[in-house]
Amino acid sequence: MGIASAAFESLWNEYVLWSALVGGFTFIWMAHHSLTYRSKDGDDDWVDVDGIEVGVFPKHNDNITLELAWTIIPFILIVYLTWISWGPINDVWADPSDPASQYGLDCTDPAADSNKCHHVIDITAQQWFWSFDCGELGPSLCDSSQYQDLNGTTVPVLSLKEGEFYLANLTSLDVTHAPWFVEFGVKEDAVPGLDTQVWIIPTCEQADCGGEEGESTLLLCTEYCGDDHAYMAAIVNVHK
């Protein structure tokens, strides 16, 4: 099972690779220098390279070439990492009214392309439970009638179909909450007085639809909202 989403995983792997390289480079350098340049016999035996003396500003110790090098090279790396992070932003914040976006228009919209359209559902947050509203969507696309026990609390169950695109309209009736679809790797704040949205793209890689492991995925609240913040969860099922 992958973590979060395909976009997340590929970015994650790339970042971990570069982190390991940069980290490794730094630590090897540090290990080398901290061992090689030890003082041989303690305090008194050292070569005064920079004129260290109390009350005297020591000689400058610099090398413009090196300093430029480790300004420019990390900068290039940063630009590269930013560049690869750019594309997946569209996955996260596609414009729902743009027919050319990868999620198309709302499927109920007559102008929508039936091969590339999204379904709209409503998620309402309040202290301390979630309410899902599938609207007009049929039970095979979205079902929110079930409840399940989760470690002593009863939580709602949301069933979605794999491969479909869902746009969740988020609202809150009291304080700020945030649904985190853990296995899909998306979250967005549900802010009172503000309408926010989040795209949910369930797949069977993440949710293991009806597999050996726990077939349900969790939705957790990830914006602190008071007493039962930890128990404000939901179950999200994905079926084929």
């Binding site: 973590i3 979060a4 989403s5 976009a7 997340f8 970015l11 994650w12 970042y15 982190s19 940069v22 980290g23 730094t26 630590f27 990492l81 930013t82 992070s85 997946p88 932003i89 996955d91 996260v92 914040w93 945030a178 985190w180 790797g185 998306v186 979250k187 967005e188 990830t222 914006e223």
Partner: peptide
């Protein structure tokens, strides 16, 4: 601090932040 700085770099990548935020 190097490790902390490196782990910090994961967050500005928006598509990863949506998963990692508040965890």
């Amino acid at each position: 601090f190097t490790l902390g700085g490196i782990s910090g770099m994961f967050f500005p990548s928006l598509a990863m932040d949506t998963h990692l935020h508040e965890t």
